[in-house]
Amino acid sequence: MSTETTVWLAFVLGGIVTYLQRASFFLIIGDRALPDPIRRALRYVAPAAFAAIVAPRVLDGFSLSEVTAPDARLLAVVFGGVLMWRIPRMPLLLVAGMAVFWLLRWVGL
């Protein structure tokens, strides 16, 4: 399978899976509830998955660029985490986090 075919197939099937998730109760099942243990466990998908996405990019390096020093990223993420925890505003996190990251890069970290 060519790379381009893999990419398209992944997006089409990913789209179908996502649609089926969104349609599951709304369209298909109706308002019967999920089993309680599963419903409650699903609430932890977001923290587990997002942490699993963030950590390797901060502690290891990006696949998108060459990495020279990881310290600026780690420090900026710690700063961003504290900021977001105190003031949960996504635009503020992105602006302030990038500013601190660039500042740290500028001073040579």
């Binding site: 609430r43 932890y44 977001a46 923290p47 587990a48 998955a49 997002f50 942490a51 699993a52 996405i53 963030v54 950590a55 990019r57 901060v58 990006f62 998108l64 660029s65 990223r73 900026a76 993420v77 961003g80 985490g81 977001m84 925890w85 949960p88 996504m90 996190l93 992105l94 986090g97 990038m98 990251f101 890069r105």
Partner: peptide, 30 residues
């Protein structure tokens, strides 16, 4: 390195979605 904003965004989503001890444990394990 504008792409650094992407882990920052996921960090934000992580913090918004973590509200109790099991959430923190899920994040640490993940």
């Amino acid at each position: 390195e504008i792409e650094f904003a992407i882990p920052l965004m996921f960090l934000g989503l992580l913090i918004l979605s973590t509200s109790n001890l099991p959430g923190v444990v899920a994040a640490v394990i993940g």
